[in-house]
Nucleic acid binder design. Structure first.
Lengths: 246, 246
DNA sequence: CGAAGAATTGAGGTTAATCAACGAGGGTGG
DNA sequence: CCACCCTCGTTGATTAACCTCAATTCTTCG
């Protein structure tokens, strides 16, 4: 009856999640980096590497500097005092994090895959014009991405959220299929790099609801998979209308 | 049974909402602008004014330029094809909108109050360094604000969302009350500048749920009000714990 | 092989949405 | 000036979606 105890699902003690997908060689960087865009910014910072699931920075920590993803993926999250978690963004190479208008980090950053990042001290950021100009472009994209995420969180149903999430997993394919392409995408496996709990925290759902949505999409023939962490087939023509966006 | 028909509540035909609070003289600019910060950027753009509820720009329109709020408030929103709406941000003076990484606007902007804005053509923005540097600072704040909003939309209950919203209405007071200040704030009225529907679209709820949350807070003695558009008293000490954040 | 975490699935409960009725406030026109 | 209308807001009854709790299976790893 307490209105404080509804959305939650996992409070407080959150054991460190182990690295996923042990069947795949780790240490391999999953995302290709776009060398050209950031090449001129390399000299200003220092390179750092983190294994999957490592915490790169924590909400509330004193902001040491800015991070630029060279390779791998990062997720940004925020916690409520009772342990409810919201994953706010999932960032790819060339995206920045550690953004804050104050002197403390506003959200936590965790490596979703093994990552390579460039770290720029605050003093460097303040002085480097190219870095700031780069920042403007990246922040524009991140603001728009946040708006899409707000629309998903505030107005989409569970299935719509999961369908949207899966579609976002396939950036290489979302550009195509504007008309009549092969509806089955069978390029081997599409990796699902997050656990059901992480997906749930990203989509504002519980892990059970995410699991049920996946099962439903599988049962309805929209997806085909054997393992939770990879999709063998994605029927885009049927998936897209389920996102609520099209 | 259709999973497409849950969150909605208002689809398609959305009649133009009339201006609120007819009892207050309009044309008066509600928010004071911080002249100092943006003074040096004034010469680059042109000033424009919009009455309350005017549409400043629409999602999907070709991006003509960038907008800086001088006075008044703007809300940014996105629509799903079936009419579900999410208000993504509510912006105050010195904030910018019309941000897009492409050549089309990514969300719509509507005046919540009468507004004064500076309009900067894209070509100007591309060339003006001071403008870009200002942009960086503002975008940092907006990214963090979007993260807070994601946490609210994804993980907070209806009452927590409304309590958080009300707390955000009182920026002049949120800084105080870190310890033991007067728990009743009786400086005349706190204006609620949005209709229940707009609040609902901002908080990812229905207008009925918002209304019930207000009623509950009133019944519980957390708020006191006679009219829906202004609060006579806000018990901050009791409101804060209801936001889920503290 | 056994343990531990992740995922799935089912049963039941709770929140918020939906559907509906009513009332208050402001504007308009007779 | 009053009747009417329209929108907004409130409140109640009901429904539906999602959460919670729980049991089971699967995978991975020691």
């Amino acid at each position: 009856m307490s209105q404080l105890s509804q959305h939650p699902q996992h409070r407080l003690d959150r054991p460190p999640p182990p690295e996923r997908s042990k069947g795949v060689p780790t240490g391999v960087l999953p995302d290709g980096s776009d060398e050209s865009v950031t090449a001129d910014l390399r000299g200003l910072g220092r390179l750092a590497e983190f294994p999957a699931r490592a915490t790169v920075l924590s909400e509330g920590d004193t902001a040491r500097g800015l991070y630029l993803i060279i390779a791998g993926r990062i997720m940004l999250s925020k916690l409520l005092p009772d342990g409810r978690r919201q994953i706010c963004e999932i960032l790819s190479p060339n995206k920045v994090f550690g953004i804050t208008p104050t002197n403390r980090y506003h959200s936590s950053a965790e490596a979703l895959t093994p990552v390579h990042v460039m770290v720029y001290d605050r003093s460097i950021v303040d002085r480097s014009l190219p870095l700031k100009l780069f920042l403007v472009e990246q922040l524009k994209a991140q603001v728009c991405g946040s708006h899409d995420h707000a629309l998903l969180l505030g107005r989409k149903s569970a299935v719509e959220r999961v369908a949207s999430f899966i579609l976002d997993l396939l950036p290489a394919f979302t550009e195509r299929l504007d008309g009549h392409e092969p509806s089955l995408q069978g390029n081997g496996l599409v990796r699902v790099p997050m656990t059901r709990l992480e997906i749930a925290d990203y989509l504002g759902l519980t892990l059970e609801t995410v699991s049920r949505a996946f099962s439903r999409l599988k049962r309805d023939g929209v997806l085909a998979y054997d393992r939770a962490d990879s999709l063998m087939q994605v029927n885009l023509r049927r998936l897209k209308p389920l996102t609520g966006t099209y």
